[in-house]
Structure formats: structure tokens, C-alpha cells
């Protein structure tokens, strides 16, 4: 089983995230980079599948040099090898062009199953799994909270607003996972040391036959026109309960159309 996990390095959610004023892209210097939390669940699922069915887990990331830290963590958790797509030409790529670039790499390295977190904590589009499956021409199973591999097909539970759907797909397929699917393991010290010796293949756009005109800021289909800091939170209003507290709460909720 050739399992590929797409991971993304994102700014630490605990820190203040900023956009750059010059080209309106993410300011990667302003915050510490960490592996996207939901992708850790995808790594865990990949390792679980490997432990049950054998095979190899490859970590795939697209991002600047600094993203190698996130690769390192996934390798320390137990992934076997990594592919790091890094090129100045990719700077400013949107979801659509990112999916193109990653699909080109996936075609090149091959896969039976592609796993990724259901969304990233920074851009939060949640579109990549769908875009990848379209570009690769394979089934998409998104928002999975349970995955079982059965020979050349997979069964999954897909989280919905009303519960979950049971879906089946033939392999190869693209699967995005939600945090209910498992409990990601912590890397052990032995795993951390072993990760040092695991192969990380570095690719530039030309190596993956990516058309540089279709990626980066210029190749993006979407554009950040403007942005502003979130307004500071307004001071809350304190209502004193003089026997009519319940009524006042109800009035407030009604005024906001909650009830």
C-alpha cells in the first residue's frame, strides 16, 4: 500500500497571524510555523493503515524551506519518507493552483491512497481534497471519521450535520479526515532520532513538470483585494438582575434573532 499524506505548515494558532502588506500573502515571519493540526490526524491514520496492511507512508508538503520542520515531525511520528515541493515560483499560490502543483507531484510519485486533514487552520478553505481528486481522476472521500481498507476498496464513515454517511470507494482515492477519526501519537525520542536518517526528496516546479505560469501569485485564480485587522472587541454590557434577569436575557436573544 503506497500511502501519501499531504501536510501543510501553518502559523501557530496560538500566535497572532498576519498578512504581508506588500503582496497580501501570509506573513510567515510573524508567527512560528507548526504542522497543521488536522494533518496530524491524517498522518496517524496513514500509520494505522500501514500497520494493518503494510506498505509505505510518504509525507508530501509544499512550502518554503521552513516547512521542513513539519516534515520532520511527521517523519518522527513514523512516516517513512518525504517529498518537499519548494520553489519561489509557488509563493502566493491559491487553493486551485496548489491542488494543481500537488497533483503533478502525486502523479509523479504514485499512490494508492492520499490522506489529508479536512482543512488547514490558516486558509480554512477545506477544498483541497475535492480539487485533488478531480485533478487526479480518483474518488474523493471527505470528512472521514472512520476508514477501513478492504483489498482494493475502502469503506469510510463521512461526518455530516445529521450523523454520518457510510461510503465506499475504489482505490486509489483521496481521503480527508476530521479530528474525531483518531488520537495522533506523540513522536518518541527514538522516532525523532530515526527521522534524521529518513530520505527527504526536494523538488522544484520543473522537477514535477509544473507549469510555473499556472502557480504562484500570478497564476492564482483568486486575489486578496484588501484586508484589515479585526476590530477590537466591544466592551460587554452588564445587566443587573433585579428579578427580571430572565426576561432581559430573552429580550437580548430575541433582538439578535437567536430566538
Amino acid at each position: 500500500m503506497n500511502i501519501v499524506v499531504c501536510v501543510k505548515q501553518v502559523p501557530d494558532t496560538a500566535t497572532e497571524r498576519k498578512l504581508r502588506s506588500d503582496d497580501k500573502t501570509l506573513d510567515r515571519e510573524a508567527a512560528d510555523g507548526v504542522i497543521n493540526e488536522l494533518d496530524e490526524y491524517a498522518v496517524e491514520e496513514a500509520l494505522t493503515i500501514k500497520e494493518a496492511h503494510g506498505g509505505e507512508v510518504t509525507v508530501l508538503t509544499m512550502g518554503p524551506e521552513k516547512a521542513s520542520e513539519s516534515i520532520r515531525k511527521a517523519l518522527a511520528m513514523g512516516a517513512d519518507k518525504a517529498v518537499h515541493l519548494s520553489d519561489e515560483a509557488l509563493h502566493g499560490s491559491d487553493a486551485l493552483s496548489t491542488s494543481y502543483a500537488l497533483a503533478q507531484v502525486l502523479k509523479k510519485i504514485g499512490f494508492d491512497i492520499v490522506l489529508l486533514g479536512s482543512e488547514s487552520t490558516d486558509a480554512r478553505t477545506g477544498m483541497l481534497a475535492a480539487m485533488l481528486s478531480e485533478r487526479l481522476g480518483v474518488p474523493q472521500v471527505t470528512l472521514a471519521n472512520k476508514v477501513e481498507i478492504d483489498g482494493s476498496s475502502l469503506k469510510a464513515q463521512r461526518l455530516t450535520d445529521y450523523g454520518f454517511d457510510r461510503v465506499e470507494a475504489s482505490l486509489p482515492a483521496v481521503v480527508s479526515v476530521v479530528e474525531k477519526i483518531n488520537e495522533p501519537r506523540y513522536p518518541s525520542f527514538k522516532g525523532i532520532m530515526a527521522a534524521k536518517k529518513k530520505p527527504v526528496e526536494k523538488l522544484a516546479v520543473a522537477d514535477a513538470e509544473i507549469d510555473a505560469a499556472k502557480v504562484g501569485l500570478a497564476g492564482a485564480s483568486t486575489e486578496v483585494v484588501d484586508f484589515a485587522d479585526a476590530p477590537p472587541r466591544e466592551k460587554g454590557q452588564i445587566v443587573k438582575d433585579e428579578g427580571d434577569g430572565g426576561v432581559k436575557v430573552a429580550e437580548f436573544l430575541a433582538s439578535k434573532k437567536f430566538i
Partner: peptide, 14 residues
Amino acid sequence: DTEQRLLGDTLHGL
């Protein structure tokens, strides 16, 4: 080094 920091981060998370 990277490995030592990752050990610290792992323990902090755990």
C-alpha cells in the same frame, strides 16, 4: 538542535 527542540515540544504537548 532540531531533534532536541522536537523532544521538548512533544513533551510539552503530551
